[in-house]
């Protein structure tokens, strides 16, 4: 039982990172991107490729590379979208997610194809790993809150409110949006690294677009732009989606039911919030 709670805590932490990254991009900056799973995959595969070739690298060193590669890929999807309006971005980012998955499945020599990559590391003590995950979550949360209070954070909000007006008061909006994407992607890449370390492998199927939608659901549930809300939203969704599986009920309740529930949450919350305001 206690090991089960630890596991839930680990999942909670990893998903929380994804939700925080999504909230920075979507909630704070107002850019609807749908490829958190792809950013996560970048982190997981960077970790897997580095460690499978050089098993003795320190985690801190790998972490630096994970953050860098996440940021680079964030910029890669960010650049075309600097010129795109909201709904185009959603599709372009979905497309980006599909490209990443296609490459993971097909570039066998680098990614191991559909089988993925196994890591030559021994499994972690759950308690220790839980501590590690939440240390990262706390650091990221602290950083994001610091950012929110800074001029940069207010600039991002101004862009969300009205991009043209933000430009007209001297904000270099492409720079701001690019930075939001880089930071959000780097955070998700860290989640990917933790995921790969915990599972001892990186497999393409994990990083499906349904994961990206689940993350969006967490952020919408907790309230767009509210970081603590994202933690709450993540907790609810993780409990809904992982509990039956971890308790071994998944044979009785098919995964589709969870997904339907996420869908209903998304639609009804958006409509309820609109009615309130």
């Amino acid at each position: 039982m206690s090991s089960f709670i630890l596991l839930l805590g680990i999942y909670f932490g990893i998903y929380a990172l994804l939700a925080l990254g999504q909230n920075l991009i979507t909630g704070k900056t107002g850019l609807l991107s749908l490829c958190q799973a792809a950013f996560m995959a970048i982190g997981a595969y960077t970790t897997a490729i580095l460690l499978s070739r050089h098993p003795h690298l320190s985690f801190v060193y790998v972490g630096v590379w994970v953050i860098l590669s996440g940021a680079i890929f964030g910029l890669l999807i960010g650049i075309p979208t600097l010129r795109l309006k909201g709904d185009y971005l959603a599709i372009a980012s979905l497309g980006f997610g599909e490209i990443v998955k296609n490459v993971l499945l097909n570039a066998d020599t680098l990614t191991g194809g559909p089988m993925g990559i196994s890591l030559p590391i021994k499994s972690f003590d759950k308690g220790l790993f839980l501590g590690m995950v939440w240390l990262v979550v706390c650091l990221v949360l602290l950083g994001l809150i610091q950012l929110q209070r800074s001029h940069w954070g207010r600039g991002l909000e101004a862009i969300r409110e009205d991009e043209l007006a933000a430009q007209s008061v001297g904000l270099n909006t492409p720079l701001y949006k690019g930075a939001a994407f880089m930071i959000g992607a780097a955070i998700s890449a860290m989640a990917g690294m933790l995921w790969a370390l915990y599972h001892g492998s990186a497999i393409p199927q994990t990083f499906d677009s349904t994961l990206s939608i689940m993350v969006l659901c967490m952020v919408v549930l907790g309230g767009l732009g509210n970081y603590y809300g994202s933690l709450f939203g993540t907790m609810v969704i993780v409990v809904i989606s992982e509990l039956p599986r971890l308790l071994g009920f998944s044979a009785i309740i098919p995964a589709a039911v969870n997904q339907i529930l996420f869908g209903i949450i998304l639609v009804s919350l958006v409509i309820l919030r609109q009615k309130k305001s």
């Binding site: 207010r154 909000e157 101004a158 409110e161 009205d162 043209l164 007006a165 933000a166 430009q167 007209s168 008061v169 001297g170 904000l171 270099n172 909006t173």
Partner: peptide
């Protein structure tokens, strides 16, 4: 934004405030 930094500011015909701020 570059033009603004050089010293030109403007308002808009239909208000464009940062409404939620």
């Amino acid at each position: 934004y570059r033009i603004n930094r050089l010293g030109i500011a403007r308002t808009f015909q239909n208000l464009r405030l940062f409404k939620e701020m």
